[in-house]
């Protein structure tokens, strides 16, 4: 068990009322899990991810990583956002990836950090693009760079907040396949928020279905379909309807 959520409750204070966003969230994530979180919009799935990253404070409960309470953002849990502008436009691709490595490792030379960065650039199939600036890349390529930047720091958990949400269908499929490949090759744990049931079934080994008003964990479904997966394979539609009926 790498991550434990214990009785997490979170509310937002409005101008005259308090609205409960998440209530009594309890679940565990195992090492090397690929957990997809699905739920209706406004159920607090993105908020949940932000709490795990410690970008935001919660009212009560606790989050344990390797049996230790977490209170601040750390390198062991890196967030990949949906926004295309999560790269720094004033840095080239290789600089974007090497920058967090070098900031946290002052003794490392620029060259060494670039070597590491290049390794991850080729992992996301962006060879020859290292000296481009982000505005010269397509949305899909930018998301690849963001994933490479996160992986290059060698985190234990990758937090992904609908990273493929703004991509066209074809690019999304390519990136989903790439992400599965990376997950299989490394021993990373992924928590992936999406509103797309298809995507959740294609990627995950567990699907966490959420309820809304307030956000609660409705059910965690085991997804043991053999890989490579496709929507026509036996068992796919069973899981699809199970999730669909819960939403």
């Amino acid at each position: 068990m790498i991550l434990e959520m214990k009785n997490l409750t979170k509310s937002f204070k409005g101008s005259n009322s308090k609205s409960l966003v998440l209530e009594h969230i309890n679940f565990n994530v195992n090492r090397r899990d690929f957990l997809c979180v699905v739920g209706p919009s406004g159920c607090g799935k993105s908020t949940l991810l932000k709490l795990i990253a410690c970008f935001d404070k919660f009212d009560s409960g606790s989050i344990l990583l390797n049996n230790k309470v977490v209170t601040a953002p750390q390198l062991n849990r890196i967030m990949v956002f949906q926004e295309f502008d999560q790269l720094f436009p004033w840095k080239t691709i290789v600089e974007n990836i090497a920058f967090p490595i070098r900031v946290n490792n002052i003794s490392m030379s620029k060259k060494e950090s670039y070597e590491i960065a290049k390794k991850y650039i080729s992992m996301v199939n962006l060879n020859n693009y290292e000296n481009y600036y982000p505005h010269e890349l397509s949305g899909g390529m930018k998301q690849r760079v963001a994933i490479a930047r996160a992986l290059a720091i060698n985190p234990q958990i990758l937090l992904m907040d609908e990273p493929f949400g703004s991509l066209d269908a074809q690019t999304r499929t390519t990136l989903q396949e790439m992400l599965i490949e990376i997950w299989e090759q490394t021993n990373i744990t992924i928590i992936f928020v999406t509103h797309d049931i298809h995507e959740a079934i294609l990627l995950s080994n567990k699907i966490l279905v959420m309820d809304k008003n307030p956000g609660r964990v409705k059910k965690i479904i085991q997804n043991m379909l053999p890989r490579p997966r496709n929507p026509m394979q036996p068992g796919f539609s069973d899981i699809y309807y199970e999730v669909y009926n819960l939403l």
Partner: peptide, 24 residues
């Protein structure tokens, strides 16, 4: 997200100002 990225990669507030806020 820039600020959150800065925090996520464990930059200090001075590093966030110097490396992110000023160029951005």
């Amino acid at each position: 997200v820039y600020r959150q990225i800065g925090e996520n990669y464990e930059l200090s507030i001075l590093q966030i100002i110097y490396h992110i806020l000023i160029p951005a």
